[in-house]
Design a protein around this nucleic acid. Structure first.
Length: 376
DNA sequence: AATCCGCACAACCGCGCAATC
DNA sequence: GGATTGCGCGGTTGTGCGGAT
């Protein structure tokens, strides 16, 4: 059975809002509120608009304290890092940017910020003597090999986020999110006696490397570079779906990786019979993302360069926002941000819960929500 | 001057989810 | 418990504008 339309499309006005319509809507809502029913609202005030259209207009343009344009560097960094962390959950990202709407941020990201950030990568790619077209083809081929359409798009998103993460790490500038506590979301700050992220070493102490739920994918990497004091992507505890089957694949084919040190990718989540091919696809994507050239690109991939204990974790749970409570993701994630031991579940109580009201914090705290990375 | 093209942004569309009936 | 309804969200499309040709 099909879904009933929210309004009679033949009798509603569409397109840009006139100033008169804006005044009508704004005046009414400021005086009476929405009444909790957007569908009925336009009829009450004599607007020939769909209720959803009224809602959108109010939320994005008419409600008080809306800011448009003029994104600051701090906002850029925050948007970028939250995108890397949680993906395109614009409403969550918008919640961290007072006065910004999800639509605004989404548009800003798609039209400007993404190009601005990924543009740096293009520059370095051109230095490597590889055309963008060639890169695109490689990426497309990798996507094509990933199976169905859904996987392709999700994978593309994951790739994009990973590329951005690499970019950010490579930047290592004072404006870098990781190096700039001033631009961290306010609810992150309670972590800090020291106000800084923990080192890789301390993080690694807490990684459940013997956890049978985690699957180690050894990767041969190049000579490690000294790491800045940055966090490594956290792992996320298996959401109840377990397997003891260790998965390994040869990654010697990764572009330009001399076999000098190891990098381990931990994966968790459901491991099924398809994991081998999933890992292969991951390998393909990694081989595109991790370069071994000499002009600095590879150095940005510090996560996978630092000796054997460096770990990039990938959660293959499709929807990480679900099952967080039972899976204990929050503890893991907080441990990442807050330098707490995984076992210190109670540590979350020290966080300012008021500051994250209405926010799906379980996702915010994931530095890498690879849940959208569908390899299965 | 006309046309094309790319960009930015506003608005729409359709889906998932939760509340309600 | 299933159907209906409304809300919220993310993805996509439409449109206007400015610069390039």
């Amino acid at each position: 059975m099909g879904r009933a339309p929210c309004c009679d499309k033949a009798n509603v006005k569409r397109g840009p809002w006139s100033p008169e319509e804006d005044v009508k809507l704004k005046t009414y809502i400021e005086e009476y509120g929405t009444g909790g029913n957007w569908i009925a609202l336009p009829h009450k005030i004599g607007l020939k608009r769909c209720g959803k259209s009224c809602r959108l207009r109010w939320l994005n343009y008419l409600r008080p304290n809306i800011k448009h344009g003029g994104f600051s560097e701090e906002e850029d960094s925050l948007i970028c890092n939250l995108y890397i962390s949680i993906g395109s959950r614009w409403s969550v990202i918008a919640a961290q940017l007072p006065g910004r709407t999800d639509n605004d941020i989404k548009n800003y990201w798609n039209t400007r910020l993404k190009k601005k950030l990924l543009g740096r990568r293009k520059d370095s790619q051109s230095r490597r003597g590889s055309s963008n077209q060639e890169q695109s083809k490689v990426k497309k081929d990798a996507m094509d090999s990933a199976g169905n359409t859904s996987s392709q798009s999700l994978s593309a998103s994951a790739v994009e986020r990973m590329q951005l993460y690499i970019q950010l790490q490579g930047l290592n500038t004072p404006l870098s999110f990781y190096n700039n506590p001033a631009i961290w979301p306010k609810f992150i700050h309670p972590l800090g006696d020291h106000g800084n992220f923990q080192t890789h070493q301390s993080q690694n102490q807490h990684l459940p490397t013997d956890d049978p739920h985690l699957h180690q994918i050894p990767i041969q990497t190049t000579t490690p570079e000294p790491l800045p004091d940055m966090p490594i992507p956290s792992n996320q505890i298996d959401g109840g779906k377990t397997s003891n089957t260790a998965q390994e694949f040869d990654v010697n084919s990764l572009n330009g990786f001399p076999s000098e040190s190891n990098c381990t990718i931990l994966t968790n989540g459901e491991m099924n019979d398809n994991f081998g091919s999933a890992a292969a696809r991951l390998q393909e994507e990694l081989s595109e993302l991790f370069y071994g050239d000499n002009d600095g690109n590879l150095k940005q991939v510090q996560v996978c360069q630092q000796q054997q204990q460096e770990k990039l974790t990938i959660n293959q749970d499709i929807d990480c926002s679900k099952g967080i409570e039972s899976a204990g993701y929050d503890n893991m994630n907080i441990s990442w941000w807050a330098n707490n031991d995984i076992s210190q579940k109670s540590s979350s109580t020290s966080w300012d819960s008021n500051a994250i009201d209405h926010l799906p914090t379980e996702s915010i705290f994931q530095d890498f929500n690879w849940g959208s990375m569908s390899y299965i």
